[in-house]
Design a protein around this nucleic acid. Sequence first.
DNA 1: CCTCGTATGTCAAACGGTTGACATACGAGG
DNA 2: CCTCGTATGTCAACCGTTTGACATACGAGG
Lengths: 324, 324
Amino acid sequence: MATIKDVAQKAGVTVTTVSRVLNNRGYLSKDTRDKVFQAMEELNYKPNAIARSLYAKKSGIIGLILPALRHPFFAELAGFIEQYANLHAYKLLVCDSNHDALREKEFVDLLKSNQIDALIMASHTLDVREFAGLDYPIVTFDRIIDGLSYVCSDNYRGGVLAAERLIHVGCEHVAHICGNLQLDLLSNDRTKAFLDVMDKHGINPIIVQTQTDVFDYKHYDNMIYPLLKDHPHLNGIFATSDLLAAHVLRACYEMNIKVPGDLRVIGYDDVSLSELLVPQLTTIHQPIQEMAEMAVILATQAQEADRFQQAHVFPVHMIQRYTC
Amino acid sequence: MATIKDVAQKAGVTVTTVSRVLNNRGYLSKDTRDKVFQAMEELNYKPNAIARSLYAKKSGIIGLILPALRHPFFAELAGFIEQYANLHAYKLLVCDSNHDALREKEFVDLLKSNQIDALIMASHTLDVREFAGLDYPIVTFDRIIDGLSYVCSDNYRGGVLAAERLIHVGCEHVAHICGNLQLDLLSNDRTKAFLDVMDKHGINPIIVQTQTDVFDYKHYDNMIYPLLKDHPHLNGIFATSDLLAAHVLRACYEMNIKVPGDLRVIGYDDVSLSELLVPQLTTIHQPIQEMAEMAVILATQAQEADRFQQAHVFPVHMIQRYTC
DNA sequence: CCTCGTATGTCAAACGGTTGACATACGAGG
DNA sequence: CCTCGTATGTCAACCGTTTGACATACGAGG
């Protein structure tokens, strides 16, 4: 690998001059500049970002911890985050915790060790204490942790929209499928809202939760088939993710339950999967792209001045397709 | 941020001793070791990976360039790659080129600058020349580039399996939907195989290609609906990805074409999406997890000795579900 | 001729950690 | 008492780049 010294030698100048060209500071003649650039070209020189980081105490890297890259929501989110990180000249180090608290903790250490400039946490099992003494800005997704800024969709509103829609179309026997409520997530507000509205209408939904530690799609089926089997009169389901809703639709097809005829289904997220399903999924849209953008902005633009907690709750709306 | 000096001071030893503890070399008493560990604990000290990298000339980072993180195949692939990278104590820097050759080039430079230890390329627009003078091992997915090792599935075999299956069930009016054939990808062998087999049976499939520069799912529909509309007698389709096949299924549903009754559909990849579709997709399984593992192994275990090109072609098989 | 602005060079410290060479100190075993 | 193994310290170079302090050299303008 060519170093700045090689470039200096080739261009017949000193490293200081090369550095000046590189960083465009001090007096420089066009002639020298050209010579240096040519030398860099010939040697295919790229400044060593590691060395620069060491001096600058900035790595230009954003860490992203998420529970499962293969989950369509997080894949889309990560894609957008990468895009915006790039736009702000940051690189993205992606860590897939697989919903494992221990790995999450290890990642936090790992990322600290790697001098990341900011951390975006979209994985949720960690205890608050783990963040003590971390010296970079942290943005969380869908979770409130004491002093940290966070980004989420208006979960409560989303739950209300879903509930009202089901009621509006006349569902009386409804179920709700959600992630584990013991995890201290803002997305639990969807459930809360859903129950609040249902309660107001004298309806008492069946609630099915995923397990905390399981993130296996087979597990979804193990919840959904019994639910449908044991409650043949069910006519409305609100699932807290499009992925869950997709499992419901598939189960319905196989159990010969007509959607939306026999059963109405509403999802949450509006990932591109939802448009692909048969029938296309009615869902609550959360603006993933804007949320990703905000997360990156919060992560990178955090001034010392505004290191206090900022909440960014994004509006949701219902996308009415063909399942409800 | 605490440095090794702070730890040394707190533990009442020299930095050399701390470094010895850190790297477990030289003579060390249990007493000193404990003192040092305690000091590290108290200061929440994590060794600066940047400084270590600078000295070691190894960053412990694998770069991954892919065309679209939001594409289910690449999301799954990236997830597995992250997992195996982690297993080998590597971090993963993810770059989403969005199918843009220019960005890919920029990423290659960026990653070089960041002293990555290896590069896994699952994005395909780059010219061979771009790789000249890169000093880390490179593994490509589904593409042959002169001296580089690559990983792919047995694309030709996959194409044969799909074709034979369609013929076996009596399809005579078949179409094939694939990525752009101008891109020099090994997955084009699927098309070649498909046509070879069809030709042998005197069938001349309709071929529809995606555009090179477009990676927009709306574009898929713009290909698929006209295809189905213009060819009402079509009774078999082989799509080169499950995602494409999903679009086909959805279009069929909306155009009231029965699958598999009126039309048989076979996909490729066997991503988890394929199990979620209605009806569940018959597809060609490629072992994504094993391929990811191999890519990481090739990337990290590349000895100077075996820097020559290695081909790793993984077997495929058909997963017979309900669309064919 | 003096001065100033421009252009470059020289030198060294700093970023945080690693490593090798070498010194020192202590206790145990012969 | 000498030696050896153990345990630690001292010191400095090194990784590649940046930066500041300071020197030097040249040509133009007054």
